[in-house]
Design a protein around this nucleic acid. Sequence first.
DNA 1: GTTTAGGGTTAGATGGGTCTAAATCGGTGT
DNA 2: ACACCGATTTAGACCCATCTAACCCTAAAC
Lengths: 226, 226
Amino acid sequence: MMLSDVMEDYLKAIYQLQGEHEERIKTSAIADALEVTSPTVTSMLEKLEDRGLVDREKYRGVTLTDEGETVALEVVRHHRLLEAYLTEHLDYDWSEVHAEADRLEHHISEDFEARVADALDEPEVDPHGSPIPSADLEPPDRSAGKSVTEFAEGDVVVVEEVADHDPEVLSYLATHGVEPGVELEILEVAPFGMVTARSSETVDDVSLPEGVAHHVRVTPLPQAES
Amino acid sequence: MMLSDVMEDYLKAIYQLQGEHEERIKTSAIADALEVTSPTVTSMLEKLEDRGLVDREKYRGVTLTDEGETVALEVVRHHRLLEAYLTEHLDYDWSEVHAEADRLEHHISEDFEARVADALDEPEVDPHGSPIPSADLEPPDRSAGKSVTEFAEGDVVVVEEVADHDPEVLSYLATHGVEPGVELEILEVAPFGMVTARSSETVDDVSLPEGVAHHVRVTPLPQAES
DNA sequence: GTTTAGGGTTAGATGGGTCTAAATCGGTGT
DNA sequence: ACACCGATTTAGACCCATCTAACCCTAAAC
């Protein structure tokens, strides 16, 4: 099946929205994610439905079919492998890789994908801690980690994934010690969602507005310490 | 100026045709190179003319303007840097790099270009021996080497460039010792253009049909030997 | 100089991806 | 139950890159 770059982008966006929220993805959510208008999304969804890549219920949103999910996983694999490769071998900072990977993800061959995976020794996560789908494109488990907003004062957690894409936000997080692998002690969770934490990496505390904190996924420290 | 990938392809094709033959490039030559029909080429040439990238004389072909040439050089630089990178760092064979570079050349950022050039230490030629335009995009000298078909029995030459793109042809040439840097002793130039030569690299002789030989560019050995 | 073959251009259609404006659906609140 | 508001779809348009069919120009042959 011959898919355009744009179609792949829609499938990837739907996949990622299905990961964040659930089930049916609405037209407007896709429109926001891809920065197009909703009529544009509607007409694209019709095409994807014709090709059997999404299940659609008019006025109620879409879900990916198995076939659509496989395509999305392929694109996500390309994207995350590229991000990993760019940081490992071309000296990119994690804050910069997203945009470059977005440009390239649709234009690499299967051969290129395999060589990159090989050069990286089949990595399991990208520089943001996001899991890289395996070569067989089996749907991975996406339940790893919870948003840091779900924890409370005093909890100590390990950062698993920083799923933001904005270079400025990522640079800020890095300079304040919020990166995959670091320990975070939760100092405060404000009623409006802002999380303040202390990183094991830096001296100063960090405050993360809700929008940012939502993308920081963490797991509780195996054994707690006061 | 925002150019589409396709426009870049046209400019690159015109640039390369201007290198091979001369001056005005005809519609049909571009159509052959890009595998589209001639009306398609005509309409694209009109667009490129509107943007000041080509000079066009109806029914008589086009030439690149300075601006058009700069765009073409940028694309060619991307292409050849990618070819070099793929062979150096991702273990590609020289016969395979062209297709991959063609896919990627329009989709890398200036930053990526710079990082690749840096990783390769600003290379001057790609794996086929073709010169890589410098970062300032000044038009390079394209007179290096002459086609091997212009030599005669007994001449000894050094291969500078193998400008073919067909993987099968390139594999064949490599296994018969025809690659940039090797010495070739011309054994015969048949009236229909076929060149037979002996490579300094291999024992067996190679025969190159005219179409292939035309792409093998060589320079005479500094000091001749019988 | 006229003819003619071959290539170039014009005309008109198609499909992809996008938009704006207008119509319509569906859930919420009364 | 019903009206309303916000979200969705329909309708109609546009631009890009491409095609086929038909027409026309150029240059070479006579």
